[in-house]
Nucleic acid binder design. Structure first.
Lengths: 264, 264
DNA sequence: CGGTCGCTTGATAATCGTCAATTGATGTGG
DNA sequence: CCACATCAATTGACGATTATCAAGCGACCG
């Protein structure tokens, strides 16, 4: 991987570059405060691993270009993709307690770009910059909320619902990254999509032809054109009766109901 | 729910009570610092809902007694249990970005106890207490790491592996709570276990009899005695060839491999 | 005592995984 | 530059893990 330590043309300085990839709804002061801590910008090529599970927890990363996958490793040799990362997203946020990285981070494109932040910049002992800590807290918390939804998806949705959910999520991430969300190139293989959704490569392939046949999307190799996002929304909720018949899954009748009486 | 606002017998003060349920590996100063922010202790009864999804994000909760479930709600009416919470665990950590609660929190026992912390105590604008923020960051990050593992479990493990994983996780949580991890009472129904594992009630029931038949655990109604944790560990990794034949699941060959060459 | 709830067990079936063959794209070496 | 190998993707046939449907049973509660 290519590390760019310090000297750079002016308007291409790391801080400036990184600040441009921070979330949009952020005060200029905070953007500057965050960007000031960039340790390096790193460029990877497809297939290269930025972080291995278990490595000492020294940096977190902001995607500034391309795309990445997070991979959770099982005890033997299995592994599963647990999320895809697009520009403006932070990666590697699960290690603040265990002090080591909890997933592999692998580049899906050439090039793939990240800004590297030393976590000691957020250490309570070395900084009084509470606003930065609070900001980081929000990002980690958002990652948790996203992971909770993914749990729901994996446990309760049918294959058709999962694919619909995947494309809608991808569209959302592409928009946030400032990219075209209607015509785009998937940076990951069918197998990686399947791993993320808890399905096999073959099932993903069949689902994609299903989308094509029903005019929901054009799919040619890695290129996708979303034609009917409305149908995706409908299928995400209802599934599609006519294909791989929807699986209602373990549905639970919402936490019983409220409390019965408010003692004292 | 029963709220205990302030006055209490001395050694039963909220702060003291709460501090006793904080993680063990915490400096006394931090414990005191955290405990000082307790707004109230709340007592719930089985089935009562502490928090509804979407409620304004004003508090987070530390379990001090009993048990809870977090429930993720789908767009229509489906719902899924995404985690169980035992004493010494924080709940409701997924809302710092969206400013609203992301799950329902429901009591599973009578009584069920929590300490309530106002999130403005961790607000960067109202506090300079960076150490508290950093601590909170660790808890949220740990929750994220746990959710990532749950994703792996839901997507890659067979039913037998899931049940084994569930019991080992429960043992771990019971130990951390200072309770007996070999003989205990499950506070949740089969259906709730199934929801968490992405299985049906019936499958969970069959898996439990399977554990009983193979001498791995005694299971009588809600009471469980773990006899062979070693077998649980083995089944968590390998599955059990002889039962609901193990499903290898979508296994991915670990992020290709390393990077090929380190440019410059 | 009747009714509901949680649990168990059995029979059946379906969603999706497995296995296999084929094609096209990519890349490498001779 | 082409043969060859490898990989990604598609499609079909088949099978299995697990869901669904159904019945029964004990416990708890009003």
């Amino acid at each position: 991987m290519k590390r760019h330590p310090l000297v750079e043309p002016f308007w291409r300085s790391q801080a400036h570059f990184c600040a441009g990839s921070l979330p949009v709804d952020l005060s200029p002061e905070l953007k500057a405060g965050v960007a000031a801590h960039v340790a390096a910008t790193i460029e990877l090529r497809k297939g290269e691993t930025l972080i291995h599970t278990g490595m000492p927890y020294q940096h977190i990363y902001l995607v500034t270009g391309g795309a990445f996958k997070s991979v959770q490793l099982g005890e033997d040799g299995q592994s599963q993709v647990i999320s895809f990362h697009w520009p403006r997203e932070f990666m590697g946020l699960g290690g603040f307690s265990r002090r080591s990285h909890t997933t592999d981070l692998v580049a899906l494109t050439t090039p793939a770009l990240v800004c590297e932040f030393p976590i000691h910049a957020f250490d309570a002992r070395t900084t009084v910059a509470s606003p930065l800590l609070a900001l980081l807290l929000e990002y980690v918390s958002e990652g948790l909320a996203q992971a909770e939804y993914d749990q729901f998806m994996l446990g309760s949705l049918s294959a058709t619902q999962k694919i619909s959910s995947f494309f809608l999520q991808t569209q959302h991430k592409l928009r946030r990254a400032g990219m075209n969300a209607d015509v785009f190139e998937l940076p990951m293989t069918r197998e990686e999509i399947g791993s993320y959704l808890g399905l096999t490569m073959e099932t993903v392939s069949r689902l994609l032809t299903h989308l094509r046949v029903h005019g929901v999307a054009e799919v040619d190799k890695k290129w996708v054109r979303i034609l009917r996002a409305d149908i995706l929304h409908a299928w995400q909720v209802d599934g599609d009766e006519r294909f791989l018949g929807h699986r209602p899954g373990p549905v639970l009748g919402a936490g019983h109901c409220d409390f019965r009486k408010d003692a004292a």
